[in-house]
Design a protein around this nucleic acid. Structure first.
Length: 570
RNA sequence: GCGUGCGUAGCUCAGUUGGAUAGAGCGUUUGGCUACGAACCAAAAGGUCGGGGGUUCGAAUCCCUCCGCGCGUACCA
């Protein structure tokens, strides 16, 4: 990476200067003290390092320090200038030319970080109840989770994606009872869900169980004796529905882990026993409490209710222990911000059971607001519910994935349906895809002969297909020299892909990919408008075609991570 | 109340471990197609970085305090 190269040059120079006693009272330099930044004003250079912070050690004025350091640098064909305490760097031809070459050489692997520590990661996300269709909020975790998985894999980690099915507990009975009412309605009975608000909360009155009731009656005559049969039937239907939607949304899990199986395997009981053995359980008001406050939680938590049943937390503890026992270096969970209180208690349980709580990394995502006609529609529980499926039908998979991934996980996402639907410059997805389609179009035109419909004349293709193949397969660094000056900003943006991938993966912030891809598209559109690619000057044409190809490759790689399509035409 | 996240241009948001004149997109205004896709580009206007203190050479960024908004604060899942 250019910025790392630059930083290394500076740091090496500092070490040499110190050896020669040229940096005043400075006797040692610790690498990593300085860092590169992007100059606010591009006239200064491509990168800059501020050495002012060394002034207090060296007891020298910052400009003096900067100039001294410069004397120890092998500048090659790069340009270094000093302004106040800043050392500015302008990238020379050699580096620029080689960074394009790298794109051709590495191709699909361009941007994969080298010499980084990789881990075995279990990424858990969505983990919805199988009691209904996904709502719009699940879409955010689905998109972000799958992009993060792609990104972490590309980074070099081993990633296992898991969906925890909350298929135990009281909500499953509710589901069965709700289906019973729908079935009776299908059978012509005059029944309905309770209108009393509190009573109604024991049911799922959504329309989505109507087709399930119809389907049930295709193979059954009437209501079963045990409502559990209905619960199981509905649960299976909901799971199938969810899985089909995930598939369509390009989200692919390695495993769906059933909470019920956790109970049945005895792992939950075993966990509770272990907690008891460790003396971290006490009784109060007829319930068993876990002393989580000993591990940083703000209060203790019930682990077994007075009626003898487990809480949700109990199973979740067992689940996390199970994940750790499966041998992962790191557990990453994506949870909605409404679950943030859970982090402390789960970590507490992990620690109480003798595991390292730092292995668990919880990414808390703020929630999603739907914006329709400029008005926010609150995603309250079970009302105004817009399903993810409806949203995807409305705006498409590409736009939904992009919009759900494009914001920092810490900010509430406003999903503007109208905007996401437009095929215009207001829609970033379109802007980026258009750049890719445009690159493809140029490449097509470069090797196609033209036919003038009025004169009937044919003009030969500007470039033979074989020549284009040769350009791609035997790419030489010098190819882009003719257009180097006009393409510098574009090349630097292409080069930035590498550092973007690294920080995006390390900070788990996938929105940076969305931002990058918009920036790259902008640079490309700008380049396109300022430089004609297909022309009579063959060397110039090849140089610019090479850049078009490079842009196409990088856009492709980035869109692959987002699992958004890169269209050849639009 | 406590915990947590947010507050930056009219709107939606960036701002990479504290650094040069706080940046994009949309919207507004102006200009650019008889040339590779104008679904694009170029340019302008637009800011007390929620308010007030503090830390230091230097703060949107760190600390304190106040204000506003979201989320959580169950023997629900």
């Amino acid at each position: 990476m250019i910025k790392d190269y630059f930083l290394n040059e500076i740091e090496t120079a500092i070490e040499k200067a110190i050896k020669d006693n040229k940096l005043g009272e400075m006797k040692e330099y610790k690498r990593g003290t300085l860092s590169t930044e992007r100059p606010k004003n591009a006239d200064f250079g491509d990168f800059a390092i501020n050495v002012s912070s060394l002034a207090r050690y060296a007891k020298m004025a910052p400009p003096m320090i900067a100039n001294t350091i410069l004397e120890y640098i092998n500048k090659d064909d790069n340009e270094y200038t000093v302004v106040a305490g800043f050392i500015n760097f302008k990238t020379g031809k050699k580096i620029l030319v080689n960074s394009v070459k790298e794109i051709f050489e590495k191709d699909k692997n361009y941007g994969k970080p080298e010499n980084v520590k990789t881990e075995k990661i279990l990424l858990e996300y969505i983990s919805a109840n199988p009691t209904g269709p996904f709502h719009i909020g699940h879409g955010r975790w689905a998109a972000m989770g799958s992009v993060l998985a792609n990104l972490l894999k590309f980074y070099g980690h081993e990633v296992y994606q898991e969906f925890y099915i909350n298929d135990a507990g009281s909500q499953i009975n509710k589901l069965g009872n709700s289906l019973a009412i729908r079935i009776r309605q299908e059978l012509g009975e005059d029944v309905d869900f309770p209108t009393d608000e509190i009573e109604r909360k024991n049911y799922y009155p959504g329309d989505y169980l109507i087709p399930v009731a119809k389907k049930y009656l295709e193979t059954h005559k009437g209501l079963p004796e045990d409502v559990k049969e209905l619960s199981d039937f509905a649960k299976k239907e909901m799971e199938d529905l969810q899985k089909a939607l995930l598939d369509n949304f390009r989200v692919h899990f390695d495993n769906f882990y059933s909470e019920l199986s956790l109970h049945n395997s005895g792992k939950v009981e075993k966990c509770v026993q272990k907690l008891k053995d460790s003396g971290k359980i006490y009784q109060k008001d007829g319930a068993d409490w876990f002393k989580s406050s000993d591990y940083g939680d703000d209060q203790d938590r019930v682990i077994k209710k007075a009626d003898g049943s487990n809480t949700y937390l109990t199973a979740d503890i067992a689940y996390h222990i199970d994940k750790l026992e499966r041998g992962y270096d790191r557990l990453i969970n994506i949870w909605g911000a409404d679950h943030h209180g859970y982090v402390a208690r789960v970590k507490a349980s992990i620690e109480a059971l003798g595991y390292d709580p730092n292995k668990l990394e919880v990414l808390l995502g703020q929630l999603v607001n739907l914006v329709i006609n400029g008005n926010e529609v609150r995603m309250g529980k079970r009302k105004n519910m817009v399903t993810l499926e409806d949203l995807i039908d409305e705006v498409g998979v590409d736009a939904t994935r992009f919009w759900m991934s494009m914001r920092n996980i810490d900010t509430t996402l406003d999903f503007d349906i109208e905007l996401a639907k437009t095929n215009s410059d207001e829609n970033p997805v379109f802007y980026v895809q258009y750049a890719h389609a445009r690159a493809c179009s140029i490449l097509r035109n470069a090797t196609e002969e033209k036919f003038n419909t009025e004169t009937g004349e044919k003009t030969p293709a500007p470039l033979a297909k074989a020549e284009l193949e040769e350009l791609i397969n035997n790419y030489t660094a010098e190819t882009i020299l003719p257009t180097l000056e006009t393409a510098k900003k574009l090349i630097l943006k292409l080069e930035e892909y590498k550092s973007m991938i690294k920080t995006s993966a390390e900070t788990r912030q996938v929105y940076t990919i969305c931002r990058y891809v918009q920036e790259l598209a902008a640079e490309f559109h700008s380049f396109y408008n300022a430089n004609r690619v297909i022309s009579d000057d063959k060397e110039m044409m090849k140089a610019r075609l090479a850049l078009v190809i490079a842009v196409k490759k990088v856009l492709n790689n980035a869109l692959d991570l987002l699992a958004v399509t890169a269209p050849e035409r639009m």
